[in-house]
């Protein structure tokens, strides 16, 4: 029962020692592909579903619920004063608001009231109203990963699209605006 490894292996030694390299190359190709994919681009479970029920206050102290967001096509933009990307995104939101193409509502996420209000005062307010969600509970129900995120909501209050990360002129013009226009017509 003596196992003579040398006899078995000498024939195919090179192919055997090459094997780890080949396996690694396959892995590397997989990784390279993986880099192009975005694990955060999870299809939101809520797309095609109505906005979750909520009753909260706005930044200026009025009560707001999901009913106030029905009957019009709108953007719901999740932001916070501590979020640097939101500041970058803010200029684009101001442009969109000024063009009157769509209504923008804000969802202020895990923020402080003073900080959020002074942020709007300092940089301008593109929002019709901003829902104040200091605990992030509504955002949790909405399936927010992080800020900024933007949801496109149709007239029936149903979520139609979700943008993870900032809105840029590019994705606004090419994706969100066309979609909003078709929703407006329907």
């Amino acid at each position: 029962m003596t196992t003579d490894i040398s006899k078995i292996m000498n024939k195919k030694r090179l192919s055997i020692t090459l094997l780890p390299l080949v396996i690694f190359i396959c892995l590397a190709i997989l990784f390279a592909r993986g880099l192009q994919l975005d694990p955060h681009k999870l299809p939101s479970a809520l797309i095609g579903k109505p906005l979750p029920v909520f009753t909260l206050t706005t930044l200026d102290g009025k009560t707001i619920s999901e009913k106030d967001l029905q009957g019009k096509v709108l953007l719901l933009n999740v932001w916070a004063s501590w979020c640097l990307t939101c500041r970058v995104e803010h200029a684009e939101l101001m442009n969109i608001a000024a063009s009157h193409q769509i209504l923008i509502y804000g969802l202020n996420y895990k923020d402080q009231l003073d900080a959020a209000n002074s942020w709007l005062q300092a940089f301008g307010n593109p929002y019709v109203a901003t829902i104040y969600d200091p605990k992030g509970m509504f955002a949790l129900n909405l399936g927010v990963y992080g800020v900024p995120e933007t949801y496109l909501i149709d007239k029936q209050g149903i979520i139609r699209y979700k943008q993870v990360g900032e809105i840029t002129n590019n994705n606004w013009q090419s994706v969100i605006l066309p979609l909003a226009k078709t929703l407006e017509k329907s």
Binding site: M1, T2, T3, D4, I5, S6, M9, N10, R13, L14, I16, T17, L18, P20, L21, F24, I25, A28
Partner: peptide
């Protein structure tokens, strides 16, 4: 790193004389 190491391995290790004899 891994590519070079494994290439080096494939290139060098197959020339190693293997003389392992042991019982099952």
């Amino acid at each position: 790193v891994i590519g070079i190491s494994l290439t080096l391995y494939a290139w060098r290790a197959h020339r190693l004389r293997v003389s392992a004899q042991f019982d099952l």
